[in-house]
Amino acid sequence: MINTQEPVENFQQLYDDIKKYVLLQTEYVKVEFVEKLAILLSTLLIVSLIIILVIIALFYLFFSIAYAVEPLVGSLSLSFAIISVIYFGLIALLMVFRKKLIINPMVRFLSNLFLSKNQ
């Protein structure tokens, strides 16, 4: 006589295993997402802090350059104007090379972070 109970138990076990697998995969995706989000946010925080500190340092550096150039050009306002031209030049260079300096490294970082399999 053929036991009809066995296939039903096998299907129930298969269903339970698939359900457990799906739940484990969901948890794995959540953990991986949180890990990558933490890396992304910490990198953004570090880069933001570095940018702020560089801006402050450049501010004081250009102030000191303006006061150092003042005896050469004869006017403090003219030396500050020269420093302003230097600032605009740096902004123009940043705009011209924004893809090479900002966009490409950011895309490379994000693609390595989210698309690479580091298992």
Rank of each mutant, 00 (worst) to 15 (best):
Y21C: 02
K30D: 06
R108H: 13
S84A: 11
L101M: 10
E35N: 15
I18Y: 02
I65K: 01
Q13W: 00
M106Y: 15
R98I: 12
L76A: 15
I83L: 00
Y67D: 13
N10H: 06
D16H: 04
G89K: 00
M95G: 09
F63S: 04
L44W: 11
R108L: 14
A66S: 13
F109Y: 15
S111R: 14
E27T: 10
N118S: 07
T4L: 15
L41W: 14
R98D: 14
K99M: 05
L78W: 14
L115W: 05
N3Q: 08
Q25E: 11
Q12T: 09
I91M: 05
S84F: 06
Y15P: 01
L37N: 09
P71L: 01
L49Y: 07
V22T: 08
L41K: 13
A38W: 12
T43G: 13
M1Y: 04
Y28S: 03
S79T: 07
K100A: 11
E27L: 12
I86W: 00
I50C: 11
V8R: 03
Y21G: 01
Q12Y: 03
A81N: 09
F63G: 07
F114N: 03
T4E: 14
K100M: 09
G74E: 04
Y87W: 09
A81S: 15
S75M: 12
L93T: 02
V96T: 07
K100Y: 05
V8L: 04
I50F: 09
I83V: 04
I18H: 01
L37R: 10
V31K: 14
T4S: 13
K117E: 11
N118V: 10
Y21V: 02
K19T: 12
N3C: 03
V107L: 06
L113S: 02
R98W: 09
K20I: 01
P105R: 12
T26Y: 03
E35F: 12
R108C: 13
V29E: 07
V85I: 15
A38N: 12
Q5W: 12
F33T: 14
A66G: 05
L94E: 08
K117W: 06
L23V: 14
K100S: 10
N118T: 09
R108K: 15
K117Y: 08
E32N: 14
F63H: 08
I86G: 00
V34E: 12
I91G: 01
N10V: 06
A38K: 14
I50Y: 10
Y60V: 01
K99H: 10
Y21Q: 05
I82S: 01
L49S: 07
V96R: 10
Y60M: 01
V96P: 03
F109M: 10
K117V: 13
L24A: 11
K30W: 08
I2C: 03
P71G: 00
E32Y: 10
V8I: 05
V96Y: 09
E70D: 11
V85Y: 05
L37Y: 10
T26F: 03
F11D: 01
Q5H: 11
I65P: 00
S75E: 14
I46D: 04
I2N: 07
I50T: 13
N104C: 09
Q13K: 04
S75D: 15
N118K: 10
Y15I: 08
K36S: 06
V34I: 15
L23T: 12
Y21F: 04
D16A: 11
G89D: 00
P7A: 00
F97S: 07
Q25N: 08
K99L: 07
Q13I: 00
K117S: 09
K100E: 13
A68D: 01
